[in-house]
């Protein structure tokens, strides 16, 4: 579904991604972890063309992200993305946040889009929030709305960039539960997170990044058993302490 082949990226002199290769098959859930600044966000932003890269190739469902003629908006509309800071549009109600992209990008009618929004909000456990504005919701609720907004586009894959890092501890689980359900429904997912409980439950593979390199790409059994690299071991021991 998503094939990353020998991708390198620089900010001027500074190399953010160093020869990264990664394959995510249909229905697979991979968790990407690693220290802050290791290039995790950059890597998944390259997958939907939010960040350009200088070397290598990324293909989504057979379409090359970096190629000149690629219709990026169209490609992006088929990949859902969820951000650390939710990024709901603050001037729209929850319903409109979910409905507007369906109408303007997919060409659905307003009624179809609204119906879809209501259904997804129910699935996210937020049936009563449709007419509120984002700032009137808690962080956990906002993030679930953001997930609903992405799902409304019927994406072939979902990218998550630290979806629970900005949440108060008591709200983390309500978001993780939704993501687990999504994984169990067979969604193709790439999740940047340090929630190793989530990785244990639903990840097929765990990818460890450090200094722009993919240091480890292993099944979760292998990763949590004995990671091969010392850096991954060190990282794991640190984050599993709390």
């Amino acid at each position: 579904m998503i094939e990353v082949t020998n991708v390198s990226k620089w900010y001027q002199q500074f190399q953010v991604l160093d020869d990264c290769s990664l394959t995510i098959r249909k229905g697979e859930v991979i968790v990407i972890c690693g220290p802050s600044g290791s290039g995790k966000s950059t890597l998944i932003k390259c997958m939907n063309g939010l960040e350009p890269f200088q070397k290598g190739e990324i293909k989504v469902d057979g379409v090359s992200v970096g190629a000149k003629g690629t219709n990026l908006p169209r490609l992006r509309s088929r990949i859902g993305m969820v951000f650390q800071n939710f990024e709901l549009f603050p001037h729209m109600t929850v319903r409109r946040n979910i409905a507007l992209p369906q109408v303007k990008i997919l060409g659905r009618t307003r009624d179809e889009a609204d119906a879809r929004a209501v259904k997804l909000l129910e699935r996210m456990g937020l049936p009563a929030q449709a007419d509120k504005f984002p700032a009137q919701l808690s962080g956990g609720q906002q993030q679930r709305v953001a997930i609903a907004r992405a799902l409304a586009m019927d994406p072939v894959a979902m990218l998550f960039d630290e979806p629970t890092s900005a949440l108060d501890p008591e709200m983390i689980n309500e978001v993780l539960d939704v993501m687990v359900a999504l994984a169990q429904d067979g969604m193709t997912m790439a999740v940047v997170t340090h929630e190793m409980g989530f990785a244990r439950r639903v990840a097929d593979r765990v990818v460890f990044m450090d200094q722009g390199m993919i240091v480890e790409d292993a099944t979760k059994e292998a990763f949590f058993g004995t990671p091969r690299s010392e850096r991954a071991q060190l990282f794991l021991s640190k984050i599993l302490q709390h």
Partner: peptide
């Protein structure tokens, strides 16, 4: 992040 989120939805 707002611009990135809007672009990621598929808006031109």
């Amino acid at each position: 992040g707002q611009r990135a989120a809007a672009l990621a939805m598929g808006f031109s």
